[in-house]
Write a protein that binds this DNA or RNA. Structure first.
Lengths: 218, 218
DNA sequence: ACCTGAACACCGTTCAAGT
DNA sequence: ACCTGAACACCGTTCAAGT
């Protein structure tokens, strides 16, 4: 049984990520992590100073999963790849989005991630100011989209039923634009919120390309 | 003393918001809310079914604070105003950003907010598809920026000191692009991460305006 | 109707004790 | 060195009892 491999910070973090994926961040308790590892709660404290460190650690572990195409010469392709990967990873571990807000101790994977993205912008010839704009805009968009997607009041696959139920529960005429938008757009066959991601991403990348073309490094 | 006004769902939610503002979302416990209201923990259950309902309620209360300029004829001005207000409100209650991810029961203020934004887009002549793109993009950006800003590993006012410390703690050369970007841009006088918000917002609004000009309602 | 005391099954964490 | 049992000060919530 791999359960009895020696305990380590890494095994603690992996168990915590698995528990969060299955039951949300609230399910991550010292006692639950210990039980999954076949160990007593107190044993964890020999590998991790306190629960906060576990939370910092699993956020950093999530960042480590995001792919960074370091050998991609085309900056737009590289940033597109990073954005898609970030969205996939954050979709798989949606508890991590909420956790980011309160974690102000970036780990090595997080710092490496930021370093790599700045490297892509630098090699593409973005002046510092424009690189700052680009990074802020792209990051905000990607994390924000993941947040919005996670907060949808229904699972993406049953939009029709869920939105229908929601609308039926509304006081008649209380949210006219919402009702109109739902019936004429969201409830139409073929609609999927997820596909909005690419529209926004491409709009941002295209506009940044235009602005890059109009500058030179100072 | 207003402490002895009759208890109500509203007073419970207001107390919960105040506690979250002061001590973060973890400080919001049934017992703490009760104590602030000068009442015993069990009394809250006569006005709120369980703690989850308090969390749903305070997220909705935060949405209610965001200003919606319903009488502004210029759609860009209206959306700009909404975005600035959302950012201010989410900055004041940064715990709410994290909470949004797990709240899938939108309250009346949240629904009214979405309805109003869709109304602005509709009156501006956005076809359904473009309205969907615009809303997704703007919302993702605004929430994502608030999230990113809240997650900064230092208070905005002491970037210089904090970033300096962080860089000093790095293994030499471990994050070269980050170090270069920090010394040549972030640490320069006059830099403030907060001012990135307007760059991204205006880029999005401008590009949406261009795309709106190229469409007609189907 | 609204409020509450006691109790239950949980938390994270300390400390002293085991190997 | 690594692991653990017992204990402490907390949680949210049920239930029966008070006004």
């Amino acid at each position: 049984m791999p359960e009895h491999a020696p305990l380590s910070r890494d095994r603690v973090l992996r168990a915590a990520v698995d528990i969060a994926d299955e039951g949300g961040i609230a399910a991550v308790t010292i006692r639950a992590v210990a039980e999954r590892l076949g160990v007593k709660p107190m044993s964890l404290y020999h590998h991790v100073p306190h629960k906060e460190a576990i939370l910092d650690g699993i956020v950093d572990a999530v960042f480590a999963e995001i792919e960074l195409p370091l050998d991609e010469p085309d900056w737009r392709a590289a940033l597109r790849h990073r954005a898609h990967s970030a969205r996939t990873v954050l979709g798989r571990h949606s508890w991590a989005i909420a956790l980011m807000e309160s974690r102000t101790h970036p780990g090595p994977a997080t710092l490496h991630h930021h370093d790599a993205v700045l490297g892509i912008l630098s090699r593409a010839g973005f002046p510092y100011a424009l690189a700052g704009h680009a990074y802020s805009l792209l990051d905000s968009y990607v994390y924000g989209f993941a947040l919005t997607e996670a907060a949808l009041p229904f699972a993406p696959q049953d939009v029709e039923i869920a939105v229908g139920d929601h609308l039926a529960a509304f006081p008649a005429g209380a949210y006219p634009h919402l009702a109109e938008f739902a019936t004429h757009h969201v409830l139409q066959p073929g609609y999927a919120y997820g596909s909005e991601f690419d529209y926004g991403l491409e709009l941002i990348l295209e506009t940044l390309a235009t602005r890059l073309a109009g500058t030179t490094r100072p």
